[in-house]
């Protein structure tokens, strides 16, 4: 190894830009393109696969849910809360001053039919499941849901009121197929 001549001696002395500089740059640029071109599909392989995407809708029969009752269904591996709200809860949700909300949204923006509140039951802080679906669960200071992990309180419209969660509980895409059947996703 020690016997090779230093590069400077091998090149013809030429000042300024040389053919070699150009070739180095061009080859370097092509190399960079190749690296990105390979990295892209490799990174993409980690995204949800076709079968995971295909499972992305669920139908829910609403007929067994009484007023003031909630059920939890699975959609995309996540719980979705479906609640038939009481008139008092609807009233409470509709009359909140938007200025009091960390993430201001009216109740109408969050429901298609006032009595049916349908939302993803995953705390927007770090993903725990808030309590409040079952009788006897703590429902927080705003009579909605309460996340025990780091203490987020949600109201009767699933909006964050107090705690570290940055957003209201997400509303999934859904469609009423008829009065008692909803398709989520």
């Amino acid at each position: 190894m020690a016997e090779t001549a230093p590069e400077a001696e091998q090149t013809s002395p030429a000042e300024g830009e040389t053919r070699r500089d150009f070739l180095v740059l061009a080859a370097g640029a092509m190399g960079a393109v190749a690296v990105v071109g390979i990295a892209w599909p490799l990174i993409e392989t980690m995204n949800p696969s076709a079968d995971v995407l295909a499972l992305a809708s669920a139908e829910v029969d609403l007929s067994p849910i009484e007023v003031g009752q909630s059920i939890t269904v699975m959609w995309r591996g996540k719980p979705v809360f479906v609640r038939q709200r009481t008139p008092a809860e609807i009233e409470q949700a509709a009359t909140v001053d938007l200025a009091d909300l960390p993430h201001p949204e009216t109740d109408e923006e969050r429901v298609q039919r006032a009595e049916w509140l349908i939302m993803v039951g995953v705390c927007t802080h770090l993903g725990c499941i808030p309590l409040g679906q079952k009788l006897g669960d703590p429902r927080g200071d705003f009579d909605g849901w309460f996340c025990p992990c780091h203490g987020s309180h949600y109201d009767t419209s699933g909006r964050i009121r107090v705690g570290p969660a940055p957003r209201n509980l997400d509303i999934p895409e859904y469609q009423f197929l008829n009065d008692t059947l909803v398709r989520i996703g």
């Binding site: 980690m46 949800p48 992305a56 591996g77």
Partner: peptide, 8 residues
């Protein structure tokens, strides 16, 4: 979502 390879 990328890290999970899904929605949860």
């Amino acid at each position: 979502t990328w890290l999970w390879g899904g929605f949860s």
